[in-house]
Each structure stands twice: as C-alpha cells, then as structure tokens.
C-alpha cells in the first residue's frame, strides 16, 4: 500500500493524460487495477458479512435498539469496554517503548546481528498464539520458571503474582504485539538518510539534539503505523487475557465470544461488536484531529 502510494505521489503520473475522476480516485493508472480483485474479494467476504452481522444488532431478536439498551442496563459491559480500551492503551505504550529502541538498534548493528534480531521478533510471530500463551503461563505462574528461579537465588521469599494480573496480560499482549510495532518502525528507520544527522551535527547540533529533532520526526510514520496496528489489534484480543489475566482483566472480545458461542444471542453480540467498532472509529477520528494519520500512513502530502 505504502509503496504504491509513494510512487503515485512522486510524480510518475506527470505527463500522462489526465484520467477520469473516479479512476483517479481509485488510482487507476494501469497497475492500480491489480488492486480490484482484492477489493472485490474484501467487499464480498469481509465487508458484506460484516454489514449483515452487525445489522443483526438492530433486528435480532426484534427490530429496535433493545440490544443497545441491554448493554447499558448492565454495568459490566460498559466497564469491560472501558477496561478493554485501557488495557489496549497500556499495551500500546509499553510495546512502543520496547519496539522503538529495538528497531533503532537494528538499524545500527551489522547484517548478521540484524538477521538475528529480526529472527528473535519473527519466530514468536510465527508460533501459534495458544502455544505462546501457555508457554507464558508456565513461565509466569507462582510456581513457574520466573518465580522459582528468583526464589532459588534467594532474591524473593514469596512468589511475585504475575499471572492472573494486569501485569500478566500486558506481558502476554506486548509479546504478541511486538512484531507489529518493530517491523513498521524498522522499515521507516531504514529509509531515513543518516547524512541528515551528520549534517545537523556539522551545523552544531549535539548528537542527542540531532536525534530528537531530525531522526524522531522522520520516524513518525512508522511509529504512527505501529501505534495503530498495536492498539487496534489489542482491542480484539481475548485468548491472551483469558489465559494470563485475572477475572478483572476481562476484555470485550471474551464477552462477545461468550455471547456468540455459548449464549447464542447473536444480536446482542453484534451490538457489542458494533459498539467496539464505533468507539474505535470515534477514537481514531479524534486522534486524526491531532495527528495527520493520512500523511503518516499513506505518506501523502
């Protein structure tokens, strides 16, 4: 997506006949048509079913807003929804704090270490989420590897409660989200011309100043992509919080699954999903007022 958009904005279109309005909107410059099958596929297997499913929130079991009233009639749903956004926000911040220096380090080391660092991020990425979550259970629980090692070394007397707490959830979710943050940030950083930093320093900037005023702003598109991917993904998690979290860390995805698969209230589940979608949408629009998402994600000016 990014490279195609970049191509079209760097002036390759210049000198061609001015295309039709609609095709310009679809970026119909020949190669752009290759996107069409994907677009049709997405509309058919994702867009349409989504609309059908979400519309059930208004029609199942009867026409009206009853499902939405039910959500707010029980304090547990708004609370879990709020909890979901809070956990997603914490996960995003922690992930970013880890991913940014990691990606930066990847741009500094030699090719061999870069491959190793990339592998360290990608191997967990390719492993089943269930396997990883259970592995983390073994690692984090009171009698697990982490606590028993520290106890053997006499660092602690009592095990530190890590599992079934917010810490456990954040630990697990950050681990899942890390590749989605490291990869876009690394991709952006690799494209940054280092000579700009040298130029800044030759003009008298301290290395730290050059980093903050030149490098960080230039890496912003990668950071924006990472934040969006991490945050939006984190909203939908339910396996990791179910396995690593305590009862208080229930996320909305878990309740939606429960409504669909055991209570069988499709309409109510659809209402919860719609609410999640709308809240996410709203949040992104608000964020869009402060950060130019379009610029950062599409690299258009």
């Amino acid at each position: 997506m990014t490279s195609a958009a970049t191509d079209s904005s760097t002036g390759r279109l210049r000198g061609r006949p001015r295309p039709l309005r609609l095709s310009r909107w679809l970026r119909f410059d020949g190669w752009g048509a290759l996107v069409l099958p994907l677009l049709v596929f997405l509309v058919l297997v994702f867009g349409l079913p989504l609309v059908v499913m979400l519309s059930r929130s208004l029609t199942d079991p009867s026409f009206g807003l009853q499902n939405y009233r039910d959500i707010f009639a029980n304090a547990v749903y708004p609370r879990v929804l709020g909890n979901t956004f809070l956990i997603a926000a914490i996960v995003t911040v922690v992930t970013l704090a880890l991913a940014y220096p990691y990606a930066y380090l990847m741009t500094l080391v030699g090719p061999v270490w870069r491959m190793i660092m990339l592998g360290l991020v990608l191997v967990p990425f390719w492993t089943s989420i269930l396997v990883r979550s259970f592995a983390l259970v073994l690692f984090l629980r009171d009698t697990g590897a982490f606590n028993s090692t520290l106890q053997t070394l006499d660092v602690i007397d009592q095990p530190i409660p890590l599992i079934r707490t917010l810490t456990g959830v954040v630990f697990g979710m950050v681990q899942v989200a890390l590749p989605f943050a490291v990869l876009p940030i690394f991709a952006t950083m690799q494209g940054i011309d280092r000579r700009l930093l040298q130029a800044a320093e030759s003009l008298g900037a301290r290395p730290a100043g050059a980093f903050w005023r030149i490098f960080v702003p230039l890496s912003a598109p990668g950071v924006a992509a990472a934040v969006l991917l991490t945050f939006v993904q984190a909203l939908g998690y339910y396996i990791t919080p179910a396995l690593l979290g305590g009862p208080k860390n229930t996320m909305i995805g878990e309740l939606i699954v429960q409504q669909v698969s055991t209570v069988l209230r499709f309409g109510f589940a659809a209402a919860l999903a719609t609410l999640l979608l709308l809240t996410t949408f709203l949040l992104l629009v608000v964020a869009g007022r402060f950060v130019d998402l379009q610029k950062h994600l599409m690299r258009q000016t």
Binding site: Q233, L235, V260, F281
Partner: peptide
C-alpha cells in the same frame, strides 16, 4: 481516503475478535 483508512483499520478490531 482518510475515512477509508480509518474504517479499514477499525474493521480489524472486529475481525480479530472473531
């Protein structure tokens, strides 16, 4: 396009929970 970008990203939230 901006709206589309936002909508598609928001859509992820729902697909990933199913």
């Amino acid at each position: 396009t901006k709206l589309l970008a936002i909508a598609s990203v928001a859509g992820l939230a729902v697909t990933l929970s199913s």
